[in-house]
Design a protein around this nucleic acid. Structure first.
Lengths: 190, 190
DNA sequence: TGTTTAACATACAGTCTGTCTGTATCTGTT
DNA sequence: AACAGATACAGACAGACTGTATGTTAAACA
């Protein structure tokens, strides 16, 4: 069984990220210990601290991977060319679909901000939901006077989407939130 | 120096809450140890674990007290009778003022949700900002068809306020966010 | 092929949390 | 007022966890 070092490292990293992800989702960051993580991955703590700076660094890798997958899921939901309004609303649905995957709200909306800080989470958000929303809003408001507010509105609405995802996970009716968001969006153009 | 037990307990609780608050704000919940807390309060860990179930229970007391003070601050900002639109916008400014007090965003928006969970934080929010916002929206939308959406909109806008408070603390222009919120509010009635 | 370096495993030190036990002060009762 | 019980702490203790330091094996490279 002769493997290259690069292969070993990469598969080990992925195994640790996967094990960490499962436990962070199940028990939260604070209640997950590094012995548990490496035990689940079938290795020792030496491997963990060889590939990651500390427990927080592993968590960051988990969150970044998850954010990337969410961005992919949203992009995969083809934004049919039905105009900016429809694009935003379809994007909203795609976001809710993506955040419905178990554990994602906890990783990105609860533990993430506390463990990694608001600045790092802002940077991660910017690459995913916030950016596409900003573009959608720019297209929507292109003829209006408050075009320069697109960025600010994207940030605010992105926060609203997040809270909606949390509420939906708790059992709230998804349709209510989609309607409410639609009314907010439509209000910007009327 | 003869003191009643009730007095001792109450002053001790307040001292622990105050010491905990200072450290939770300065270093965050995870990086604050109970020895530090009791050291700052000038007592021992025995006192802490006599009055609180555990570290998390003290944190909950800190957050609840802070949320109550924020609610007071907002209520103190007299909602002059200028109609529902103005009431909501004034409430927004009062909320930003309240959240500008150092540490409040960290306590309520970053550490709170991760440590106490979204359900407990929802319950705390409901008593403070969300409730007044909901009433304002109900008044604003009383003649419109989507009156029953006031609650959902209150939740969404409350989340937007929170993110705005975080952005403002990071250095963003407060006026931009007040304007953006005003445009969202006005869009609901036009 | 020998030497350096990367990829781990294992041992260790320090700290923290929650509990348990002990002591002094207060409270209620007779 | 004195005693019994409860309350309010202080201090000691056990277990667990984090990060580091050291050791070992296998790959990389010259």
């Amino acid at each position: 069984m002769r493997r290259t070092n690069k292969d070993r490292s990469e598969s080990m990293r992925q195994a640790l990220i996967e094990a960490g992800r499962a436990l962070f989702i199940e028990k939260g960051y604070a209640d997950t210990s590094t012995p548990e993580i490496v035990n689940r991955a079938g290795v020792t703590r030496g491997a963990l601290y060889h590939h990651f700076e500390d427990k927080k660094d592993l968590f960051r890798a988990v969150v970044e991977r998850e954010a990337g997958e969410i961005a992919n899921d949203i992009d995969a939901a083809a934004p049919a060319d039905d105009g900016p309004r429809q694009a935003i609303l379809e994007g909203t649905k795609a976001y809710f679909d993506a955040m419905a995957r178990p554990g994602r709200t906890r990783l990105l909306l609860l533990d993430g901000p506390a463990v990694l800080g608001k600045d790092i989470m802002r940077a991660i958000d910017r690459e995913t939901s916030e950016a596409t929303l900003k573009h959608g809003l720019q297209a929507l408001l292109s003829k209006s006077d408050n075009k320069d507010n697109a960025e600010t509105l994207a940030i605010l609405l992105s926060a609203a989407f997040d809270r909606a995802a949390l509420a939906i996970e708790t059992g709230a009716e998804r349709q209510r939130y989609e309607d409410a968001i639609a009314s907010l969006i439509d209000g910007l153009t009327d």
